[in-house]
């Protein structure tokens, strides 16, 4: 568990308040008969988030650490890598087709995440693709997305 940080908790509570207020406003755009339940939920959510904010404000101030921003940037490296790699992958599936983009995604992201041995890259990539092909396409007959290539 990360240390409970006052700033972080406050940000979270404020974000939740804004989110639930926006959704509540949106809920009132729909006919009452069809939106009673979401209205109720979002009022509840607003209360919970307000309570969270109160709790967060009563937390003691944390000591400011040196190099905080640098550390924070380093902590964002992994999520950034994962989302860029997987979004590019799904985007590619739609255009290029499943198998080619999977091969590129697996090898590319393994390399990017830190595995550099070509043998491992090729073996794992080929193994995964063969397994998916055998299980889905050959055995069960699922059509995986086809694009310009395969």
């Amino acid at each position: 568990m990360a240390q409970i940080s006052k700033t972080k908790e406050c940000w979270f509570a404020v974000a939740m308040i804004l989110l639930s207020a926006a959704l509540l406003a949106q809920a009132f755009m729909y006919p009452a008969q069809s939106s009673q339940f979401p209205r109720f939920l979002m009022v509840l959510q607003l209360l919970f988030s307000a309570a969270l904010l109160v709790v967060a404000l009563r937390l003691p101030h944390e000591k400011t650490k040196d190099g905080g921003s640098k550390q924070r940037l380093a902590a964002l490296r992994a999520p950034f890598q994962v989302f860029v790699a997987s979004s590019a992958y799904v985007l590619a599936i739609g255009y290029v087709g499943y198998f080619v983009s999977t091969a590129f995604f697996l090898c590319g992201s393994m390399y990017w995440f830190g595995t550099h041995k070509p043998v491992v890259l090729i073996a794992v990539g080929a193994g995964f693709i063969l397994t998916v092909y055998a299980l889905f396409v050959f055995f069960i007959g699922v059509r995986l997305p086809e694009g310009i290539l395969i």
């Binding site: 790699a85 992958y89 995604f105 059509r143 995986l144």
Partner: peptide
């Protein structure tokens, strides 16, 4: 993790797709 991660994402993508044969579902997954 550098090998397991891509494999887990790869499985998640093919699983999310094969449920309803929908790429939109894959985006929802992400």
């Amino acid at each position: 993790a550098s090998i397991l991660g891509p494999l887990v994402i790869g499985l998640g993508v093919v699983g999310a797709y094969a449920l309803n044969m929908s790429l939109v579902d894959v985006w929802i997954m992400i």
